[in-house]
Design a binder for these strands. Structure first.
Length: 210
DNA sequence: TGGACGATTGACT
DNA sequence: GTCAATCGTCCAT
């Protein structure tokens, strides 16, 4: 299991090192799921306009200013949840968004939660789908993944995968920063749909930003 | 207290 | 390629 020191580092370093790690959910129960992280994004806090912590420790973002190694879960678009791991030392905001993972064990449990006919590599692809497949909700917000008795923990990989760095997906602020880390060539990595970014930019002109 | 917006997704044309 | 769903959070009043 990863110790708290792993998370108490620069967010970018934690994000890069998380790719290839294994999420252990509900270990020791019939709902146990193992999933290998294949894609993450770094959110830097006060200096990062795309981060929820950009405006300081609001009630929602306060957890990102707290102890590293905790889970930050938020509800987005009224539809789904997104899960982050808090980084940096206490008092400094930072978090790593879990965007995609590959199911290693407990595939039946994940399929039950996802429903329908989903290809194996797509079961945990996309931040919303990842949370649904792993059963992560607002109830898990604040979970300490380093405590050893939470329903979620993270284990280091046997070997480091090759990683590609690119721009973050689905944001309008600081969109050019290369803070997305993905397992090079892995089938479970998510990708923005063709034309999606362009459409979003056109919508953005409504706000006079263009 | 009201209104705008969003770290997305699935469905439809 | 295009669009609607849906609600918590945050800022302005």
């Amino acid at each position: 299991m990863l110790e708290r020191e792993f998370f108490a580092r620069a967010t970018v370093d934690v994000a890069r090192d998380l790719v290839g790690c294994v999420l252990e959910v509900d270990a020791g129960t019939s709902a146990h799921v193992s999933a290998r992280v294949v894609e993450v994004e770094a959110y830097l806090g006060l200096g990062d306009p795309a981060s929820h912590a950009y405006r300081g420790p609001t009630p929602r973002a306060a957890i990102m200013f707290g102890e590293p190694g905790h889970l930050y879960v938020y509800f987005s678009y009224g539809v789904h949840h997104c899960a982050n791991l808090v980084t940096e030392s206490r008092g400094t905001a930072g978090a790593v968004l879990l965007r995609a993972a590959s199911v290693e064990a407990g595939e039946d449990t994940v399929r039950l939660r996802r429903g329908g006919a989903v290809p194996r590599e797509a079961l945990l692809r996309g931040p919303g789908n990842l949370c649904r497949g792993l059963g992560i909700s607002l109830l898990d917000n604040g979970l300490d993944v380093c405590s050893g008795d939470a329903r979620l923990s993270v284990s280091p990989p046997a070997s480091r995968p090759r990683i590609t760095v690119s721009r973050r997906v689905g944001i309008t602020a600081a969109a050019d920063r290369a803070l997305r880390f993905a397992w090079d060539g892995h089938a479970a990595v998510s990708a923005p749909r063709p034309g999606r970014e362009q459409a979003r930019r056109l919508v953005g002109t409504k706000k006079g930003t263009g």
